[in-house]
Design a binder for these strands. Sequence first.
DNA 1: CGTGAGCTTGACTTGTTTCAACCAACGTGG
DNA 2: CCACGTTGGTTGAAACAAGTCAAGCTCACG
Lengths: 246, 246
Amino acid sequence: MRENDADLKSSTFDVGTACADCPAFELNLCHALAQAAKQGPPMTLRPSEHTVAARRLICRARDVLEVVPIICQGWAASAVTLPDGRRQILSFLLPGDVVSTALIFDPVSQCSVEAITEVRYRAFKRTEFKAALHTHPSLFDKFSRVWVDEKASANQLAIDLGRRTADERIARLIFNLSNKLAQRSLLRDWTMDFPLRQHQIADATGLTVVHVGTVLSGFRRAGLLDINDRSLTISDPAGLRRVANM
Amino acid sequence: MRENDADLKSSTFDVGTACADCPAFELNLCHALAQAAKQGPPMTLRPSEHTVAARRLICRARDVLEVVPIICQGWAASAVTLPDGRRQILSFLLPGDVVSTALIFDPVSQCSVEAITEVRYRAFKRTEFKAALHTHPSLFDKFSRVWVDEKASANQLAIDLGRRTADERIARLIFNLSNKLAQRSLLRDWTMDFPLRQHQIADATGLTVVHVGTVLSGFRRAGLLDINDRSLTISDPAGLRRVANM
DNA sequence: CGTGAGCTTGACTTGTTTCAACCAACGTGG
DNA sequence: CCACGTTGGTTGAAACAAGTCAAGCTCACG
């Protein structure tokens, strides 16, 4: 698959160099777009490229976006915030992830998206993307798979928040992230980059920062994992999996 | 809109008599299908009809369904259950609701669906439905709107479960249901049919049955609402809205 | 050198769960 | 017709998980 990248870059549809270098290229919608452009009728779909610094917003809830962003590099989080400041992170976005498939059909964003690290992303014109969906069946297939996955994670999130203990929620969050990173070859010997702050873990798991801290130091003391210098190692995968109830 | 129903019933695509009588007909995917069949290229799409008794399953998680069910009458709940019995209800399904849009693309069900009252539903062949989506743009539009709504409620559920108190969750559940029923003209003077058992409210809000009971009797004592004989009246809409933080 | 963001830890409070007993309504079968 | 189990609801007491408040620490940054 990788040997085609050069062709893809120079085809009528320019995925751009960066996207093909992205670790998640094969599972990326960008890739699907490129494939579709090669195999189906040609299309000119030139996404704009953007870079945002850590802690900056990519979009806020209720913004009208005429564009569908796909993450190419870095970590981001999509979240909802209540008027009184309570916040719930709905998902962490890694390279290859679409911010939300809903954006392809509805320009108003349901949630705000914040860069955790520095983030590079491509923005595809919504109308063009939508049109391409109709003309390129393989793209549509890929897209519907992404959509189904998105729904599955939303369901998982609901049962995690509604019915699981703090320990389970945090252990599962770490496993889910490690799985996503593994798919992208960003996990080696159970070690991964881990740019999350405790308050972000709290917002993702529906807990308070303090409690996240105590649970994590519990895990550390139990020899399940180790976090330092923005890097996380799962020292006892079996043990952590037991805690996570996976 | 209603005066077309007769035509619709007798067009090449037979929605059937029952569906057109459904209180949710205008916002129904069945209706969109009927419209599409009339206006676009003709299609033959004959859903099968089913009736299931209260407390029976319509499908269980991981079932392979070659069919997309749309509720025509009654209440149902879609839920996920953990091996140890913990359960989370993801949504209540009312007439006009598709069980899950994901079923159109992926035959394996992500959750189990249980009838709360007796339920009548129509099952459309997945492949036929999917094909119709491509040939009938208006159907696709309607469908994508349903998808976006589905995503929005999933997001709402996440923040409710993650960040709201028991009082808020229950009050909001009642408001959300009353809104859905109002759309279907099934709400009069803040009174509605309410077939839910406390344990179902508990599973929907991530609480225990006992706590749901105490919160509800709190609401009752505060004069916010009144439940008896499977019927619920919101006596103090403003007060309940304040509790719900809407 | 001060300031602020992030992490850790401890003491205390609170919301929710757990356990338990009890009651009412209902269906079923003797 | 009554005896019986089942399901659903109510209430109270005790236990517990997680939240709140607070202090002290490190570290990066201007």
